[in-house]
């Protein structure tokens, strides 16, 4: 729904989420956009969500973790202003992949791209099942962001989230937006307002929008 009506508008910020297969990237985004947790099919190629942040449009790109799409991921990273590097707190291998497979992909992203490291599936964490310590994840998040001035951030770009409970999900996204597209307190408030009303936007016709006509037809005589 979001994509169909809004894809014509240009996004002010591109956020891309990267991470190993089945770490819960799509769930994370859906928890944020739809506010609920539900199981998802494997993402094919990539998916796309548009979000309002005050006066800005933010495009959130979900990528497929499957290795066969690696070639595309670097393409989708192009022009990204922020990247979410997601790993499963219960699987060390997914954390290692971030460094080995996904970090190089971000060469295509903007130079000042903010990289946020996100541990997922916090709710599944049992005593002893944690395979990635907070310290090493924090250290990693600092190291990979040496391109930007970390002092500008009010915290380390590392979050531990649960898409099932929603813990830290919205905070994480708003942390990114606030860094890339800072809003004043007042604007933030209205951003919350639009969040509420945006659900109805699609049911109205925008009369100011030019009627979409086939581009081919107009060029007929120039052949």
């Amino acid at each position: 729904m979001t994509t169909s009506s809004a894809d014509k508008r240009k996004a002010d910020l591109k956020v891309i989420i990267l991470g190993d297969f089945a770490v819960g990237k799509t769930s994370l985004i859906c928890r944020y956009i739809e506010g609920k947790f539900r199981p998802h099919e494997t993402t094919i190629g990539a998916a796309f969500f548009l979000k309002q942040w005050g006066p800005y449009n933010v495009a959130v790109w979900d990528t497929a973790g499957d290795e066969k799409y690696t070639g595309l991921q670097s393409f989708y990273c192009r022009n990204a202003g922020a990247a979410i590097l997601a790993f499963d707190l219960n699987h060390e291998s997914s954390f290692e992949s971030l460094w080995a497979r996904f970090l190089p992909l971000l060469d295509n992203a903007n130079e000042d791209c903010l990289k946020v490291v996100v541990g997922t599936k916090l709710d599944l964490l049992q005593p002893g099942s944690r395979e990635v310590t907070q310290e090493e994840a924090r250290r990693f998040s600092r190291e990979i962001n040496n391109n930007i001035d970390l002092k500008k951030l009010d915290r380390e770009p590392y979050f531990e989230t649960s898409s099932k409970t929603g813990q830290s999900v919205t905070e994480m996204f708003e942390f990114i937006y606030q860094y890339c597209l800072p809003l004043s307190e007042h604007e933030k408030k209205s951003a919350v307002e639009t969040k509420r009303t945006s659900a109805f936007n699609t049911s109205t016709v925008d009369l100011n929008k030019p009627a979409v006509s086939s581009p081919k037809r107009t060029n007929c005589c120039s052949r």
Partner: peptide, 22 residues
């Protein structure tokens, strides 16, 4: 046409503004 039969949208800026289609 991309790998795995994905239809990829690309703008002249070299980025995509729509998700791919299978």
């Amino acid at each position: 046409s991309g790998p795995s039969a994905l239809g990829m949208f690309v703008t002249s800026e070299g980025i995509s503004q729509r998700p791919p289609m299978q």
